[in-house]
Amino acid sequence: MTLRVGAHVSIAGGVDNAVGNQLDVGGNCGQIFTHSPQVWQDPNIGDEEAEKFRTGTKKNLKGPWVIHTSYLVNLCTPKDDLREKSLDSMQKEVDAAAQLDIPYVNVHLGAHTGAGVDGGLDNAASVLDEVDVPEGVTILVESDAGSGTKLGGEFEHLAEVIDRTEQDVDVCLDTAHMFAAGYDLSSAPAVNETIAEFNDVVGLEHLEYIHLNDSKHECGTNKDEHAHIGEGLIGEEGMERFINHPDLADVPMALETPTEDGKSFEWNINRVRELRHDHEE
């Protein structure tokens, strides 16, 4: 069982810089934005930097990388203009993934904003159906903290999207989001139960990536605020079991932990390695 763990790192100065940034924090896989996630923007990656990224990744990292889409993307929206922008953005992200030899593009379902759960899930599936996904790239739907009308907080939402779209989509589970949405991960038995439920509802064969984050808020609060590994309300026991759960041991993990209290990604990656029992690299 190979431990694949890394962080969400910056591409400032060129996407090829992400490789060195990942190595600097001790990661061997990880996540990037192709541009600022707060705006509608095209990835705009030059051929030379793409080549450097691909070469650097192959030489230095275990991989895989995942691209996280813009925060503005809303697959569930009933609004035509937002739907079109979301579709256009998704298309450009999967094309960028192909350019960079990145196998995954991660996206939140978004909020149905009055369309209802069923309507929102249908909207999401229909947007996904229209994306022309290049060979070798898979879209991952991320679990959500479930506040307001956001979908993806319940495993059933993820299962329904997989079922309703003609696209082959898989899942990225975020530990802080799952916990916020009401899935307990704070003890070894709770982790076992939650993973078993995910397998029953969605299927572990669909789990391709994990966002590993502790939570600053209680289980079921729908509040999404990440904490250092083992130091939040999921805590050390839950995190240790999650990291070592036999069904999850080979799934790559990207950290989105905060930089505060003198602790950064490097501290958190080291913490994951300390909690992992087999320590294989």
Rank of each mutant, 00 (worst) to 15 (best):
M1I: 08
G14V: 06
V15W: 05
L23F: 05
L23D: 11
D24M: 10
G26T: 06
N28E: 10
C29A: 09
C29P: 06
T34W: 12
H35F: 10
V39T: 14
P43G: 11
D47C: 00
A50M: 06
E51C: 10
G56T: 05
N60D: 14
N60I: 05
L61H: 13
T69M: 07
Y71P: 11
L72E: 10
L72P: 08
L72D: 09
L75W: 03
K79D: 12
L82N: 03
E84L: 09
Q91C: 03
A98N: 09
D101V: 02
I102N: 06
P103Q: 04
A111L: 08
H112G: 05
H112Q: 14
T113N: 13
A115D: 05
G119F: 05
G120C: 05
D122Y: 04
N123W: 00
A124K: 04
A124H: 01
A125M: 07
V127Q: 12
L128N: 03
D129R: 13
D132T: 15
D132H: 14
P134F: 00
P134K: 07
E135I: 06
V137E: 06
T138F: 06
E142C: 05
S143F: 04
G146F: 01
F155G: 02
F155L: 11
L158F: 01
T165D: 09
D168M: 04
D170Q: 11
C172R: 01
L173W: 00
D174R: 14
A181E: 04
G182R: 10
G182Q: 08
G182S: 13
D184C: 06
L185G: 12
L185Q: 02
S186V: 00
S187E: 08
S187D: 14
V191T: 09
D200Y: 10
V201N: 07
V201C: 02
G203V: 02
L204H: 09
E208T: 05
Y209C: 05
I210M: 14
H211S: 08
H211L: 05
N213D: 13
N213A: 13
K216C: 06
K216N: 10
H217K: 14
E218G: 09
G220M: 05
G220K: 12
H226A: 07
H228W: 02
I229R: 01
I234W: 04
M239N: 13
L248S: 07
V251L: 15
M253V: 00
M253K: 15
L255N: 03
T259E: 13
T259M: 04
D261C: 02
K263L: 15
S264M: 02
F265I: 00
E266Q: 10
I269Y: 10
V272Y: 02
L275H: 09
L275I: 08
L275N: 05
R276A: 11
H277M: 07
E281C: 09
